[in-house]
Structures are given as structure tokens and as C-alpha cells.
Write a protein that binds this DNA or RNA. Structure first.
Length: 379
DNA sequence: CCTTACGCACATTTGTAGGG
DNA sequence: CCCTACAAATGTGCGTAAGG
């Protein structure tokens, strides 16, 4: 290519004159001039670096440690009124003490100005005078520690921790924007060297598992381990089939005189038995078959999931029916209890009437008569 | 909300150790 | 080697007081 260009394209075009030094001598003298110019340049160490590498860009300055809170991110304030008041600092005690005096001296001074003046005074205050306020702040700090310990042992604090944990879980669920399903895919990697020991690398194909960014649930992990276990078993089976094929090919040359039908009957192809018909020279680890297996495995998992959902729906319906039945029985029980109570009351009344009737029957035996106390109508 | 200095709590990053 | 757990470091938010 370069030879072709050198023949067709003028030399001046390929090697332009340096710094406008006029026309160039034809042929090899131009190259010699360039070589001299290059040789006259001061030698400088050449660093083979990647300009896109952030490590190279920041290598000179001392790397500032990243971390901390991202700018603009707001925290949710705790709304618990049972939380003890935060300790007052020595500076705050100093402010309270001096503010009233300063306001008396400068009644027209705005509040922020007084604060600024007191801040300046605090900055210039000697350490021994600051010590008094620091001691008072320490006492308040001890008060805060006591109240905080009491609060942390209270049910209110435990409730707060539970609420916060629930809020975290909720925020994590709401922040999940990526699909919650596991995507299994493969892509061709043209630069991957062939590896006979690893069938996955043989044809330059690699597999990728695209997982959601949230922490993997147990179900996700189980599904992933299933796929990994399947891949391991498939690799093992493929290696065994490959060995068997090689054995068959080796014996094929020795048994040329034997009939093909006899040989097939003696060594049935395991791939044919498994429903896979490999092409000549393309063993069982053909990734099309692997892909098909994986997709079938995913289909099986999806059908299992559908069945589980149906079972869950049936169980929920049964639970609802049982709850309705339970409610009905409870209502029936209450009604029966009310009826029983009224019957008991009626029984007591009947018993009293029976006793009074017995008394009436017994009166003649004692020579007594029942007097009609009703007032005659004629009166 | 303004203003101040200070201290604490907390989220995030980074480094490290240990297990599989 | 990768992942997890933990500690340390770092930066940020917020409370504390006061009155208008």
C-alpha cells in the first residue's frame, strides 16, 4: 500500500518541506534531511499512556479523596418528639450570655450584626475564658448522653428504628428503575482466542448475565446458581461426548472393513440419543444448542413461576373463603349466645311461676283461701 | 429565614481482611 | 479472583441559642 502510494504520489506530498524551506531535493535526500532533523531533536522520555485513563490525568496532583455526601441530597428529618434535645455548644452558651448585654448597649443593632460581633469576640476570647463555657457545654453533653441512652432503651426509639428500616426498604424498591428480571444474553467477541479447554471460548462467544442493580434477592441467586450449575453440567457432558466422538473417529479407521450398521448398533451416538444431531466437526458444545438449552431452562423457570402464582392465587381465594366462613360462624355463635341468654331468663321466670303455682295448690291443705283482691266493678 | 461556631449524626467512598 | 463485611476517612446536613 505504502509502496503503491510512493510510486503514484509525488515525494513532496508524502514528505512536505519543514518550515517552508522551499523545494525539496527529490528522492532519498529528503528522507536523509528528515532523519538528520529528527536526530538533532533533544531526546525525551516517551511515556506510553492512555489519555483517557483518569489515573494518568490526576497523577501529578495529590489525589483528593472522594467521599462524603453528594451535593443537593436532602435527608429526611426525624419527626420523633421523644428524641432528647441536642447538647448546647459552648459557643451557644456564650452567645446567650453576651447577647443580652450587647443588645442593651446597642439596642438598634440588627440581630445578624450582633451575632457577627459576638462571633468575632468568641474568636478572640482567650482559652481560659472559653473553658468556662466549654465546661458548661460538657455538662449539657452529659445530660444529652443520659437522655439519649434512656431514649435508645425506650419503645419509641425501637419504633423509630423500625420505621426507618421500612423507609429504607421502600426507598430502595422505588429507586429500582432497571428491570427486575434477569436477562441472559450472549454476544460475539472477535478478539477472544480459541480455547479448547473451555467450550464457551471456542468460538469467541461469551455469555453475560444482566442483573438489576439492586441487591440480589434469594430468588435471583437461586436462579443464577441454577444457570451456573446447568452450564457446568453441560460443559462436563460436552467434554464426555467429545471424547466419545474422538474415540469413534479413531476406531473408524481401524474398522473400515466392518459394516456401518453394525458399528452404529454397537456405539449409539449419545447426541442422537439426546435429540441433538451435531454437524460433522461441530461438537455438542455448539453454542446454538447451548443457547437453546438455556432458553428452554428459562422457559421452564417462567412456567414454574406461573404455576406458583396460580397456586398463590388459589390459596388466597381459599383463605378469603375460610375467613368469610369464620365470620359467619362467629356471627352465628353470637346469635346463639344471645338466644341462650334469653332462654335462661325465660327459664328463671317460668321457674318462679311454677313455684307460685305450687304455693296455690298447697293453700287448701293449710285451710287458707285465695282472696280476690280485685275491686268490684259495681263500686 | 437571617447569622455565627461548633459538634454530632449520617451517607458515601475507599481500603482491607477474610471466606468461598 | 470475587464478593462481603467492616473500619476509617471524608463531606454534608442539621441542631443549638437568640429576636425580628
Amino acid at each position: 500500500m505504502w509502496l503503491f502510494l510512493a510510486v503514484l504520489v509525488p515525494t513532496e506530498f508524502l514528505f512536505p518541506p519543514p518550515n517552508g524551506t522551499g523545494s525539496l531535493l527529490p528522492g532519498s535526500s529528503v528522507i536523509q534531511t528528515y532523519c538528520r532533523d529528527l536526530a538533532s531533536l533533544p531526546m525525551q522520555p516517551i511515556r506510553l499512556t492512555d489519555p483517557g485513563d483518569p489515573k494518568e490525568q490526576d497523577s501529578e496532583e495529590p489525589k483528593k479523596r472522594k467521599g462524603g455526601w453528594p451535593k443537593g441530597k436532602k435527608r429526611k428529618p426525624p419527626r420523633d418528639l421523644a428524641v432528647p434535645r441536642a447538647p448546647t455548644t459552648g459557643y451557644a452558651i456564650f452567645l446567650n450570655e453576651q447577647r443580652s448585654q450587647l443588645r442593651a448597649q446597642h439596642p438598634n443593632l440588627p440581630f445578624p450584626e450582633i451575632t457577627k460581633m459576638l462571633a468575632a469576640q468568641w474568636a478572640q476570647l482567650p482559652q481560659e475564658k472559653k473553658q468556662r463555657y466549654v465546661c458548661e457545654a460538657d455538662e449539657d453533653k452529659q445530660r444529652y448522653i443520659r437522655e439519649l441512652k434512656a431514649y435508645q432503651n425506650s419503645e419509641a426509639y425501637r419504633a423509630f428504628l423500625r420505621r426507618r428500616a421500612a423507609q429504607k426498604v421502600l426507598a430502595r424498591c422505588e429507586g429500582e428503575k432497571e428491570p427486575a428480571v434477569m436477562e441472559l444474553s450472549y454476544a460475539k467477541c472477535p478478539e477472544a482466542p480459541p480455547d479448547k479447554n473451555n467450550p464457551l471460548k471456542t468460538t469467541g462467544l461469551y455469555f453475560s448475565l444482566k442483573m438489576p442493580s439492586v441487591r440480589l434477592s434469594r430468588e435471583h441467586l437461586t436462579g443464577l446458581s441454577d444457570v451456573q450449575a446447568f452450564l457446568g453440567e453441560f460443559e462436563k457432558d460436552s467434554a464426555e461426548c467429545l471424547k466419545h466422538l474422538e474415540l469413534l473417529e479413531g476406531e473408524e479407521g481401524q474398522n473400515l472393513n466392518k459394516g456401518d450398521s453394525e458399528e452404529e448398533a454397537e456405539y449409539p451416538d449419545p447426541l442422537l440419543l439426546g435429540g441433538l444431531i451435531p454437524e460433522k466437526g461441530f461438537a455438542s458444545f455448539d453454542l446454538c444448542f447451548l443457547q437453546e438449552f438455556i432458553f428452554k431452562l428459562l422457559q421452564i423457570k417462567e412456567s414454574e413461576l406461573r404455576e406458583l402464582r396460580k397456586t398463590l392465587e388459589r390459596a388466597q381465594a381459599e383463605q378469603e373463603a375460610l375467613q368469610r366462613q369464620l365470620l359467619e360462624f362467629q356471627n352465628r355463635q353470637q346469635w346463639l349466645e344471645v338466644e341462650l341468654a334469653s332462654l335462661k331468663t325465660y327459664g328463671v321466670v317460668l321457674e318462679k311461676e311454677f313455684e307460685s303455682l305450687n304455693m296455690v295448690i298447697m293453700l287448701p291443705h293449710f285451710g287458707l283461701r285465695v282472696m280476690d283482691t280485685a275491686v268490684p266493678a259495681s263500686l
